[in-house]
Amino acid sequence: MENAKIEVVVARPEDARIIALLGRITFSETFGHLFRDPSDLLHYCSNTFGLEKISRSLLKKENLFWLGLADGLPVGYAKLKLDVNSDFVKASRVGQLQKIYVLKDFLGYGIGLKLQDTLLSQAAALGCEEVWLSVLNENSRAIRFYEKNGFKIVGHHDYTIGKEHFEFEVMSKALSGES
């Protein structure tokens, strides 16, 4: 895959199965080791990445999805939610980078960067002044990635899944001049 052709395409409603599967796999690859009870992980993945939920999400006008492809195979995806409020961001038009997930075997090929650049460009084109995201504070690889790409830590929040308690960094990036 070293010379793989990398591309990003807009996801369509018929891509729901692909996104649901990619979400389950990539979430488990990234965070599965943090769950003491495997049923908590399974329950979360079933709820968050269930086919029905992803299908509904793809149809909402405030949600935009992209697929990252390597030699035509779907290996990652990104989701932007438009007009999202945040206690940490004061701009009037705000987007939330809700997900950039790439299969573990394809990390380091630039797919995440291409997904992020596409998402940020589209957010700016749609009038977003700022984009924010949450990243697990233990995920130093992701935090470095976002910092390298102009995001700054602007706050923290907690989240509980089953018996597990997680701490997140909130990061944001102004989009002036991005489009």
Rank of each mutant, 00 (worst) to 15 (best):
D71A: 08
K114W: 04
S140A: 13
D87I: 11
L136C: 03
D37H: 03
K53Q: 15
L103K: 00
F27C: 01
D71R: 06
R56C: 07
F145R: 01
K61P: 12
F27V: 02
F145T: 01
T48C: 11
P74K: 06
L80F: 06
Q98V: 12
G110Q: 03
I19E: 06
Q122W: 13
F65Y: 15
S39W: 14
D71E: 07
V8E: 00
K60C: 12
A125M: 11
K79G: 03
A70Q: 05
S28L: 01
A20T: 01
S28V: 01
K5P: 05
G127Q: 09
K152W: 12
K90E: 14
P38K: 06
R144W: 11
V94G: 10
D40W: 00
A20E: 03
D83K: 14
F106D: 01
L21R: 14
A125D: 12
F35K: 03
A124M: 14
N63M: 10
A123N: 05
S86V: 02
Q116L: 15
A11F: 04
G177V: 15
K5Y: 09
L113N: 10
V8Y: 00
N63R: 12
N139A: 04
S140E: 15
V9A: 08
Y101S: 07
Q96N: 09
G76M: 06
F35I: 05
G162T: 00
T118K: 12
H43Y: 14
G127N: 06
V9K: 11
I153K: 12
G110Y: 05
V75E: 05
R12Y: 07
A123E: 08
D105E: 15
S176T: 13
E7C: 02
D117H: 13
E52K: 12
G68M: 00
T30E: 02
D105G: 11
R12N: 14
P38F: 10
R144V: 10
E14S: 15
S176L: 14
I19R: 09
F65S: 12
R56S: 11
L136N: 10
G76Y: 10
L82A: 05
F65Q: 11
A123V: 04
S92D: 15
R36D: 14
F166L: 06
C128Q: 13
F65A: 13
G155M: 00
R12E: 15
F88G: 03
F151V: 05
S86A: 06
F145K: 00
L22H: 05
K60S: 13
I6P: 03
A174C: 13
L126S: 10
L41V: 07
E167A: 11
G155I: 04
L103C: 02
